Amino acid sequence: MRLAIFDEYRLGVITGDTVTGETVADVTDALPWPHDPDPLTAGWWRRLCRDFAGVRDRLASAAASATPRPLSSVRLRGPVLGPSKIIAAASNYAEHVAEMHGVQERTLGRVEPWMMEFDAFLKAPSAIVGPADDIVLPPAVLAAGHEVHHESELVVVIGTGGRDIPASAALDHVLGYTIGLDITVRSDGDRSRRKSYDTFSPLGPWLTTADEAGDPADFDIELRCGDSLRQKVNTGAMLTPVPAIVAYASSVMTLVPGDVLFTGAPPGVGPITPGDVLHASISGLGDLHIAVR
């Protein structure tokens, strides 16, 4: 099932396809608990992440009977609401680690060896935006001459959550997947700050639940900036696969329903400038188009 959050933070199921035309069916009223339209207190979404298996059938039934609306007639939001945290994996593709030596030499004048090792760090949830928004480059960052880079990534949304989740059971704790852009200022300073500016975590266009998405070790990721192909990789090239990322993160902090995990940047990261339009795609998960200003 493909779940979307749209307009005044309503819940939709994406119907149709790229051939017949994708539409959205409003299934908000099928939720068995109150819908709070305030994105800051949207406990209904976190409850849906936790209890999705129990409401899946009623959402599917509501989608089948609803009058579908063209996607062009709604405002797609980021397909998550109020996560307690965004966890991001660092240095998870060997070719990206290799390219970062040159990036750091150019932007920092040195290589930071510790940043070439796999680890996890936090990003601010307030950085999340959706397909209808823009990436806004901070004027002070541009004035200082710092590069701002795109990083297209597979993003995991946690379902049931937990602590010390074994890798063998990790995928049972995943609600689904979406496309994410981890926008990054290349400068000195903490990763979390450089990746947490408002609008620096675009997500979308919707969330595809794990039962429909397929194997997270076999997704094709592409990113184009305008007509230029920047990134192209299969998630099978991850150094630390999705189950191990979930297990590692949960060994440090309790994962709760609705938490968001960025799984690491593929090779091909590069600068973005005002006026650019980014087009990120992941096989089976859709396409995310977003402008830069």
Rank of each mutant, 00 (worst) to 15 (best):
N92D: 07
G286V: 02
A94F: 07
P37K: 12
L239F: 00
P202Y: 11
L255P: 09
L71N: 04
P216V: 00
S65T: 09
Y177C: 10
V24E: 04
T263D: 09
M238T: 01
I14R: 06
L288C: 04
L154D: 04
R47C: 05
S126R: 03
G275T: 03
A127F: 01
H173N: 05
I128G: 02
G54E: 15
D211S: 06
L171S: 00
D220M: 09
A64P: 02
V174L: 02
I179H: 10
H146K: 05
A42R: 15
L11H: 05
S168G: 08
P139T: 06
R46A: 11
A88Y: 07
S61I: 15
A25V: 11
P139V: 05
L261Q: 03
G161R: 11
L59A: 13
N234W: 08
Y248Q: 08
V155R: 01
A4R: 13
G286K: 02
Y197Q: 04
G284L: 05
I165M: 03
F262L: 07
D182H: 07
D36R: 13
I135T: 10
T254Y: 00
Y177G: 15
T273K: 15
V97R: 11
M116H: 14
D276M: 06
V277W: 07
R50M: 13
T15S: 12
A64S: 04
V233C: 04
S65H: 14
L71Q: 09
R194T: 03
R106A: 13
V13C: 12
M115G: 15
S250Y: 01
P266G: 15
V156A: 03
D211Q: 00
A4E: 15
D276E: 03
V55I: 15
D188M: 15
S72N: 12
I128N: 00
I128D: 01
G189S: 02
Y93N: 03
T67I: 12
Q104L: 00
F121D: 02
P271I: 00
G214L: 00
N92T: 04
E222H: 10
I179Y: 06
R77V: 07
